[in-house]
Design a protein around this nucleic acid. Structure first.
Lengths: 236, 236
DNA sequence: CGCCCGGTGTGGACGGTGTCAACATCGAGG
DNA sequence: CCTCGATGTTGACACCGTCCACACCGGGCG
């Protein structure tokens, strides 16, 4: 804690910290303003000097969770070897898979935080405004960059690029939700891993078919220069 | 209402009916036992003669929602013509797509009910016990039947059948969650429809590739046997 | 130096919730 | 007819979010 300068010092930070701890094991419905105030050793209502609403506090926790989620993805992505002698498309494809695995890992390891994140997730940016925030560090931006790489490498047909981000996000998010606290919550770990492999392979196979098969209009457009990979370790 | 035989008559049914109505527009967090009792014109606590818990009441609503969800899927599936002169695999493939569209339709049309369903969804049956309940009428069973059809028709390789139910469910459920009350909630209808088409086409293309090419995540850059082209899926 | 003001924390109140316990009512069956 | 069990009522308790009035305390101004 930084030096206590006032009555309590840094109540706001203490509240957020406590809230994150509670959210980890109870999810969003476990977050109660009064309870958090009690934990921090302050009277109820004190929190309202720092957060207009309970929702504002939850949003703060969601921001922390979102950062952790993003960093979990980055960590997984960074483990992929940058080159493959046999297949030049493999690194980009593996990065996409690992990105999904990082997402699911987080959802399973921190189901409470994960649910808080999606109880108050900010609007995903529209496709038009994406370039403007290409430097942002959130799961959707990371995913889009990886898909662009997949096109640049010549694996994903440019014509199939549109909507790919929604497809990947949907598949991985659905998997995460169904398994972390949904109807598939009590599958054992091994089966779960195998199932996730199937999901990711299904997408990979489909995207490979866009360049190889007769599936889409023009099988080829020359690959663009690969963008620098955002392997930043992230905060936390 | 059936003839009132007692103090109130059929309180239980009245409570469930009111609860479903509330859930439609407020989701699970809008369901309050006291409020429902008030709406039905009965004192609080009366409900506890019929439901042990608030959770028990929510579960009842979830059952109603699950039935509606299943029926939405059936309705969509039933619209697919049973035969296609050009391509014998098309009906089964279209049924799978329509099944997904029915799922998403329901999630978008009834976001509150949809969320109640997945706030308390029963455990999905394991693969072993599936045959035993092949006659059950729930989304997971329907999906499995359609995937079996896809194998029978020769479109989906038997080796790729395992895990396909999880893949399809994940993709469609994720899409539904992200769009119905998630970060993509304010996409306009046309874009949404197009995105769902992409998701479903991605799966269709991948499954079509399982009968033609190597099923493993091998590079598979070379062109493959001529597969009937999985162009836009449906009689949307 | 002293006073005031605004940021911060306190205490109380109101209406809402789930749930338990005691009581009242009413219909069916002995 | 009378009892008994199923059903509904009333009251209470402990929580919750939030609004209000008040108390504190330190820094900036006179």
């Amino acid at each position: 804690m930084t030096t206590a300068t006032y009555h309590h010092g840094n109540l706001r930070a203490a509240l957020v910290e406590a809230a994150v701890a509670v959210a980890r094991e109870s999810g969003p419905e476990g977050l109660a303003v009064r309870d958090l105030a009690r934990r921090v050793g302050v009277s109820h209502n004190a929190a309202y000097r720092h957060f207009s609403d309970r929702d504002a506090l939850v949003a703060e926790v969601a921001a922390v969770g979102l950062a952790e989620l993003t960093s979990a993805m980055h960590r997984r992505i960074a483990r992929v070897p940058p080159e493959d002698a046999d297949d030049p498309t493999r690194p980009a494809r593996s990065r996409l898979s690992e990105c999904g695995r990082g997402y699911v890992d987080f959802a399973l390891a921190e189901p409470g935080l994960f649910r808080v994140v999606f109880a108050a997730y900010p609007q995903a940016p529209s496709v038009e405004e994406l370039p403007a925030r290409a430097d942002a560090d959130d799961p959707f931006t990371v995913l889009n960059a990886l898909l662009d790489d997949l096109v640049a490498v010549g694996f994903l047909a440019p014509a199939a690029r549109a909507g790919a981000e929604i497809t990947c996000w949907s598949a991985v998010h659905g998997f995460a939700v169904l398994h972390s606290e949904g109807p598939l919550r009590q599958l054992d770990g091994a089966a779960r891993t195998a199932m996730l492999d199937v999901v990711l392979d299904t997408i990979d196979r489909s995207y490979g078919a866009t360049t190889a098969g007769p599936a889409s209009p023009a099988p080829s457009a020359e690959p663009r220069a690969p963008r620098p990979r955002p392997d930043g370790a992230g905060p936390g």
